[in-house]
Amino acid sequence: MSIDTKKGIPEGIWSKCAACGEVIFQKEFFAGYKVCPGCSFHYPLSAHERLDTLLDMGTFRELDADMTSADPLAFVGNKAYKESLEASMANTGLKEAVMTGYGKVNARTVVIAVMDFRFIGGSMGSVVGEKITRAIEYAAKKHAPLIIVAASGGARMQEGMFSLAQMAKTSAALAKLADKHVPYISIMTHPTTGGVTASFPALADIIIAEPGALIGFTGARVIEDTLKEKLPAGFQTAEFMLEHGMVDMVIERKDIKGEIAALLDMFQMGAAGRQQETLSVGDIVPGADVARKMQKTVQTGVKKSAKNIKTQVKRLQGK
């Protein structure tokens, strides 16, 4: 018996770790956030399990829960797209590869999106793109920090260019969120690969990766086939990406929630300082009417100086 590194569901009372071979008892495995006590490989979590590790109990409220995929290309392959969708729904109890909503991280309200790799490889089609974009827009509207947990093999092939376009859509929404100085923390989990990596997961203020997670753009097999050579050990792991400056930290699953809370507090403090700065006129000159008077003086001054410039220009032109 072994644990599948992609599914992370052990059978029976004990199982062998697929990463290191260590015997793990199921009870211990689940109590320990699905982390192997031997090699500390972080097995994938379902969206619900992930929410449990990050949010205060009972605080999650889901958004857009009933959005489902259409089949815009009427895609035919070895299996019809509709069949794959139905199988994934039955398998996971989810309607799509991402759950979005809001909740609390140690009492701090956040907007959150969590992907589930079990749903067609966590691939991003129109629904994943739309739900994440709405979550980003909601965070911007509410000025609430955004957390996105990525777990994806890439863009969803069965929706063709509709899928690719979701990369641009989510990225554009994040540009608007950044304009509002709302913090965005990305958590890259096993695996975060393909086109999806080249969109929202890479565009965060802070990127946290889980130990051992596969992170990259092009699949290792494709690179091997192109280069005709073996890849270096540890290629495209979270640790590799840390070494190359692509992520901020690689930390254990149990520590992520606390780290998010600590970061948000610091960003919050900075933002409060900025607000105070814009209010500082009122601090020095008490009384609204005095402030208004000052503003008027400034405006008159501006008008006057504009008039002065015009007169001077005319003088210079010899009129």
Binding site: E130, A168, K169
Partner: peptide
């Protein structure tokens, strides 16, 4: 430009 990027997607609600 944003509206154009934003509008692409096919889903059911």
């Amino acid at each position: 430009r944003y509206a154009k990027l934003r509008a692409i997607g096919a889903f059911e609600e």
